[in-house]
């Protein structure tokens, strides 16, 4: 029997995606392995050694400090979520204000444009030393998530269809009713888009920030500790964990974004 690929069949499409992903993964592992053999340095362990270290990490935790993997992950996630919620709490009202009031926006733009290009991680040493090791990483995450979130929300408010505002006015809506019933719902997909982008950047920030914050622990701390001790497979195991968690975070954000866009009927 000859198999014929039908691109309109969703099972065929799924099988194809699965196959391609598998092949991509095999290529990745092969190249990694070859590289570790060719380079022949302990700094590049082969995949098998990494998996060993990973299993070890999952079962026994950090053998230096006796802290479990779960504790590290929880610590990283807590910092991450705190930073994210803080960014949302500040960016949402600020974005709505900046999108609504032209003069305010013009006033804020020069400041924002100066701050935006600064890599969030550049703030890490300052936050750690000037504030403290507990809140420092959270503030780095905050900075990382804040800007994409703010930009998207402001943009979303400005993009609102003026006809919808007119329609609401002719239906008797007051300014505050327009805000609640027209402006807010129509910016939701933009907020979600900002969250999606922000979460990706925020996740990069948390790991980087933890490198500077030994007392806080977290998966970034474990990575630094293992590398410093010269136990490379452990460092790579940490990277695998970081990648998986990052994938989960962006996956969840992507799902929420698509769900919200569909609910609101506006594509971004």
């Amino acid at each position: 029997m000859i198999f014929k690929y039908d691109k309109h069949n969703k099972y065929h499409r799924f099988a194809r995606t699965l196959l391609i992903t598998a092949v991509s993964f095999v290529i990745f592992v092969t190249v990694w392995w070859e590289l570790s053999v060719l380079a022949n340095t302990p700094a590049i362990p082969n995949p098998l050694q990494t998996i060993d270290a990973l299993i070890n990490l999952i079962h026994k935790g950090d053998t230096f400090t006796g802290v479990s993997l779960g504790t590290y992950i929880r610590s990283s996630m807590t910092t991450f979520i705190k930073g994210f919620l803080m960014a949302l709490a500040v960016a949402l009202p600020l974005g709505l204000l900046l999108g609504n009031f032209k003069t305010l926006n013009e006033l804020a733009t020069p400041i924002l444009e100066i701050m935006r290009p600064i890599a969030p991680i550049a703030w890490a040493p300052i936050f750690m030393l000037a504030v403290n090791f507990r809140t420092g990483p959270m503030l780095v995450v905050f900075v990382g998530i804040f800007f994409p979130l703010l930009t998207n929300i402001t943009f979303g408010v400005k993009k609102i269809d003026p006809l919808l505002v007119d329609a609401a006015k002719t239906l008797g809506a007051s300014q505050s009713q327009i805000f609640m019933k027209v402006l807010l719902p129509s910016t939701i997909p933009y907020v979600m888009n900002g969250i999606k982008i922000g979460l990706g950047i925020g996740w990069m920030c948390i790991v980087a920030a933890e490198l500077y914050a030994p007392p806080l622990g977290g998966i970034g701390f474990y990575l630094a500790e293992q590398a410093t001790a010269g136990y490379w497979p452990g460092a790579y195991a940490a990277i695998v964990i970081i990648a998986v968690l990052g994938l989960l975070t962006t996956g969840v954000a992507d799902y929420i974004h698509r769900f919200a866009s569909k609910r609101v009927g506006v594509e971004v």
């Binding site: 269809d161 006809l163 919808l164 007119d166 329609a167 002719t170 239906l171 027209v182 719902p185 129509s186 939701i188 609910r263 609101v264 009927g265 506006v266």
Partner: peptide
Amino acid sequence: RGMIFQDFALFPW
């Protein structure tokens, strides 16, 4: 004074 628009102006959400 109600209004009906050429491009409908319905609330998509």
